[in-house]
Write a protein that binds this DNA or RNA. Structure first.
Ligand SMILES: [Zn+2]
Ligand SMILES: [Zn+2]
Ligand SMILES: [Zn+2]
Ligand SMILES: [Zn+2]
Lengths: 136, 136
DNA sequence: GCAATGTTGTAATAAGATAACGTCACAGCC
DNA sequence: GGCTGTGACGTTATCTTATTACAACATTGC
């Protein structure tokens, strides 16, 4: 299922539309914001968005930001989701920066290992003010 | 405001009731679950719970689990919130383990610093299966 | 007393997510 | 062809989570 990178051609119509909305956006979008943006494309119910998002997240093309209840397009094409990913979220401009860091990932795995905890998913979200917004 | 550790005597009646519910619980509770538990104590509206929770989180006595939309009593009495805190959340039994780790905190601060990101709050939540549930 | 501040109570509503149902398209098999 | 399983789709209703708005009351400082 996850053996290859998913391209546009692999996506269904609804998945493509949702992916498009997220790719066009400068920042994360909530499911309901996506719904509103796609009303002209025939979207009428939240479930249409959530179903597409579920798949896109499963494919690793979209990440969910837990602290925002929002979704963002992956900025590392081919982010297979296995690596620990962290997000820096600017509370002023809303921009999200996706980062992967080996040392961070290692430490997290170490902590889980030490506790015999079978790690499935790691959520790391940093809230603050980005460089650009600090000067302003 | 945060110069001293908050004790039971510092809390208002509603705050004490909410804190009690969280302390009694083995795991995290949602705001609405707390509300149901406190109906006999005169709670009638979600806002009563949310207002108390806001304060308790501010005092560092309670933490919010973003990936669960739930709240848990701090297990490090005096957790001033400045340290980076991580949670290991078992998806089977629901137990939450709060951990602080200096190496982890350092790496997070380093990453933020490298990006000139003014860090305000860090959310780290590890989802998986705890040791106890693995053998079962 | 009086203003400022903070907590409380209540109702209404917004925002986020899922359940339950039926339909349709397509691939694999007989 | 006809059958069947699977997955996407559409629609409605419902559920969970969180906030807005307004009024009442208590506490503190002047
Ligand atoms: Zn990614
Ligand atoms: Zn910014
Ligand atoms: Zn704590
Ligand atoms: Zn467990």
């Amino acid at each position: 299922m996850n053996e290859h990178v998913h391209e546009a051609m692999d996506l269904t119509k609804n998945q493509s539309l949702v992916m498009g909305a997220l790719t066009r956006s400068k920042g994360p979008l909530s499911a309901y914001t996506i719904l509103d943006q796609l009303r002209d494309n025939g979207f009428r119910a939240p479930l249409q968005v959530y179903r597409a998002l579920d798949k896109l997240v499963e494919f690793g093309m979209v990440h969910r930001l837990e602290s925002l209840n929002a979704f963002v397009a992956c900025s590392h094409p081919g982010c297979d989701g296995d690596n620990t990913i962290a997000f820096m979220i600017c509370e002023k401009c809303g921009q999200v920066n996706e980062i992967t860091d080996n040392a961070l990932a290692k430490r997290v795995k170490q902590l889980a290992g030490d506790a015999s905890f079978a790690l499935k998913k790691t959520t790391i979200e940093l809230r603050g003010i980005c460089r650009t917004c600090q000067v302003a």
